[in-house]
Design a protein around this nucleic acid. Sequence first.
DNA 1: ACAGTATAGTTGTCAAGGCAAATATGCGCG
DNA 2: CGCGCATATTTGCCTTGACAACTATACTGT
Lengths: 151, 151
Amino acid sequence: MNTHICPSDGRDSLGALIGMVRGEIVRAIESDLAAQGADLKFTQFHMLKRLAMLGPMSASELARAVDLDGGAMTRQLDQLETKGYLRRQPHEQDRRALRIELTEAGEALWRHLHESNVATLERAQRTLSAEERERLHDYLERVLTALREKD
Amino acid sequence: MNTHICPSDGRDSLGALIGMVRGEIVRAIESDLAAQGADLKFTQFHMLKRLAMLGPMSASELARAVDLDGGAMTRQLDQLETKGYLRRQPHEQDRRALRIELTEAGEALWRHLHESNVATLERAQRTLSAEERERLHDYLERVLTALREKD
DNA sequence: ACAGTATAGTTGTCAAGGCAAATATGCGCG
DNA sequence: CGCGCATATTTGCCTTGACAACTATACTGT
């Protein structure tokens, strides 16, 4: 007799599937980083990317942007500041907050990493048409919105 | 002068978006688990679900199924075994391997958690039509396949 | 059967991240 | 202004997961 409770329908649940995709994307990007000799993990790369794309912002804005705990953010900022890729400046309107900005070295690093990142994300979606990519993006944003609404 | 390098096009990259969605799904499921008084984190829930849906399997098969390192798997198995939700049995064909199977308590727990898990995943996709859910699933599987192919 | 290689599971070690507490500001209201 | 509450950052503590080293067993080719 078979002991499993739910007959498998051969489909992964959305949660499992998204977890797998995320894991592969992180691994692919970290592999790029290693290949280019960049001493960054995915999280630090993500911070760098956000800052490069959106410009300076406070630490908590950055934390929200990369979905990271505030405590973890402090420590990642320490590391990236030590490596010389960013600066903590005082925030102009809010004395509690910081203005995190890339240094020239940080911007240069981003320029160096930018291309292979684009290529990797392109590779991930290479079997999707432009329209399908658009829809995937749209669906994911709708799922995200649905999850964030309280009900 | 503006210091950011890449003008924002207002769109998150696929990587960032998927990371966010995964984070929200994990938080939602852990919130369910807490609400039902289940002393499980997402990873353990995921293991339980896999075992319930697919039946007994070896530890490394389970590790691959939930995308977890082998070392981490050993420790999670320790915990779930201590809680009484699963058993390590000898594998019949391979003396290196284990046959991980749910106990009656583990199956009962899964029956208890199953409904709210379905409801949460349904909630996540509530703004998508059946056809759109189908497509989302399809696109994600194609992205996963593309990422796993060496090139 | 034997050597070499691959895989299963366990363990030690370490870095990353979540959570809570502490401190410093901001912000709204009487 | 002063009070109460929310937010920003930092730090300590703890859990989780990755990676490497190790043992045991399987597989492959000769």
